[in-house]
Structure formats: structure tokens, C-alpha cells
């Protein structure tokens, strides 16, 4: 089953995604079973109470090579603030006066059960399901302190996530899922989770050795090669086979912040 959260008539609503969604655009309210059309909602992040957002750097061998880095011997993990999250078909902004902002299409594993010191072979028991995120980066802001630093990776709106959370069992094996990114309809990034260096069971074991993982925590597992600069007006679609396709519109900093600009 696919679970989403939307704004409908001014209220947040938990919905499921109908099997016919691709043809009908229908969502079903978890509150009263009402069928709602996608055109009448604003998509929100599918994770109601986001916990810790872990993200992986350089976790695809081909991407590490693209950035001229040796593949890491240990996971390069960084944390993101929940202020970065926004829903499907929402705006993300390009900061003023920068040269290079790129998307990163990533498979996200969402924790469903609390655990510490979880063994690799038990790791999947702690996963609720999966979603897609677009973990944007602004390379101009990189500095060699806690790199990738928060100025690069914890900006408002720059981690769109969704459209939905799909139950783990509906996806099954995640070890060879195709990832693609399209910008304005053009294919710009293509890869497969088969190229992931540290896979989800490894990361659950690794992180839970350090700290307790809790429901709502998320692990964004990194992105394959294929970087491209983004500009206001661009539409980016990050898609992962069997999981979903996440659409984001790029706007200027001024358009995004409006009166607060």
C-alpha cells in the first residue's frame, strides 16, 4: 500500500493511493474513506513526524568517480533538518548568485520500529517502507568542515520527498531498482541501486551501533552519477522503479520566500 499526506480543504489528511491512481488520480482518505482527486490536494512530505534524516554521500561507485573521489571505506553520513522537506509537485529554490545546484535522486528507507545494535540480517524488520527524495546540493557552499556542511544540505525546501511512502513488502527486493532523473523531460541521470556501496541492511546495522533508530527516521541512500545544474523554471522528476516519481519545480529565491525575501 502507498501512504501519503496531503492538504485538502485547508486540513492535513492522511490518504492511501488507489491502485487506479495512474489513470484516475484518486486518493482515499484514511479518516472517512472519501475518494479525493489529486488535482484537489497539495502534496506534503509523506512522513508525518520526521525523525532524524540521515543521508549518504558518495554511496554509488560511479558518482564517487564522477566527483573524483575514491569510494569511501566507511559510509559518509550526514544529517539534514526537517526544514528541508517538502512534498511532491512543490517548489524548491535556487539561491541567488550561485553557479552550481544539482539534484540527487535517492531511495529513502524509512524506519518503522525502534532499535539499537541491529544485526544486518535483522535490519529489514526495522524498515517500514520506501520513498524517493531529491537531496539537492549547492556546490558553491561546500567547505571542508563537517562536509557536506549544513549550508549546502540543510536549506529550506531542498529535500523534496514523496510522493508517498510505499510499504516494504510491496517493493520487495531493493538491490537492483532503476533510478532516473529527467529535467524538463530530458533524461539526465540514470543508475541502479545495484551500484550502492553501503546497502540498507549495512546502514541500519552501522547506524544502530552508534545510536537508537526510531520510527520516522529516514536513510537517504545516496545518488548515482549524472549531475546537472538547475535553473528557476526547471521541472525535475526523480523516479525509482517500483517506488514512485517525485516532481519538483525550481523557483528563484525571491519567488520562494515571497514577503520574507
Amino acid at each position: 500500500m502507498k501512504h501519503a499526506r496531503v492538504l485538502f480543504n485547508g486540513s492535513e489528511l492522511d490518504v492511501t493511493v488507489e491502485d487506479s491512481f495512474a489513470e484516475t488520480g484518486l486518493l482515499k482518505s484514511k479518516t472517512d474513506g472519501q475518494l479525493i482527486n489529486e488535482t484537489d490536494v497539495t502534496w506534503l512530505s509523506p512522513i508525518k513526524e520526521p525523525g532524524t534524516i540521515f543521508a549518504l554521500g558518495l554511496n554509488y561507485a560511479d558518482h564517487a568517480a564522477e566527483l573524483a573521489f575514491e569510494p569511501p571505506k566507511e559510509p559518509l553520513v550526514f544529517l539534514k533538518g526537517a526544514n528541508t522537506l517538502t512534498g511532491h509537485k512543490q517548489n524548491a529554490y535556487r539561491p541567488d548568485n550561485i553557479k552550481f545546484q544539482h539534484y540527487e535522486c535517492e531511495l529513502v528507507a524509512v524506519i518503522g520500529k525502534e532499535g539499537k545494535n541491529i544485526a544486518r540480517e535483522d535490519a529489514m524488520d526495522y524498515i517500514a517502507g520506501y520513498t524517493v527524495c531529491n537531496d539537492f546540493a549547492i556546490r558553491d557552499y561546500l567547505e571542508n568542515y563537517y562536509r557536506p556542511n549544513l549550508r549546502v544540505k540543510s536549506r529550506d525546501s531542498l529535500c523534496p520527498i514523496g510522493p508517498w511512502l510505499i510499504d516494504k513488502d510491496d517493493v520487495g527486493d531493493i538491490s537492483n531498482l532503476k533510478l532516473t532523473t529527467h529535467v524538463n523531460g530530458e533524461l539526465t541521470q540514470e543508475g541502479t541501486t545495484a551500484d550502492i556501496i553501503f546497502d540498507v541492511p549495512f546502514l541500519v546495522e552501522y547506524l544502530s551501533k552508534i545510536m537508537t533508530l526510531k520510527p520516522g527516521d529516514m536513510i537517504a541512500t545516496g545518488t548515482p552519477k549524472g549531475l546537472k545544474d538547475m535553473q528557476p523554471g526547471d521541472t525535475v522528476v526523480c523516479e525509482i522503479e517500483k517506488v514512485g516519481a517525485l516532481v519538483t519545480n525550481i523557483v528563484s529565491e525571491q519567488e520562494f520566500y515571497g514577503d520574507k525575501y
Binding site: Y145, R151, M211
Partner: peptide
């Protein structure tokens, strides 16, 4: 690996389990 003093505040999160 720094190759220059930080030009911005050096920030980190302490996540909710902490």
C-alpha cells in the same frame, strides 16, 4: 583536509535520540 579557515559558522545537528 581543510585548505583554508572556515568562512561560515561550522554547524552540526544533535538529533532527537541525543
Amino acid at each position: 583536509p581543510y585548505k583554508g579557515a572556515p568562512t561560515q559558522p561550522v554547524l552540526y545537528f544533535k538529533p532527537h535520540n541525543t
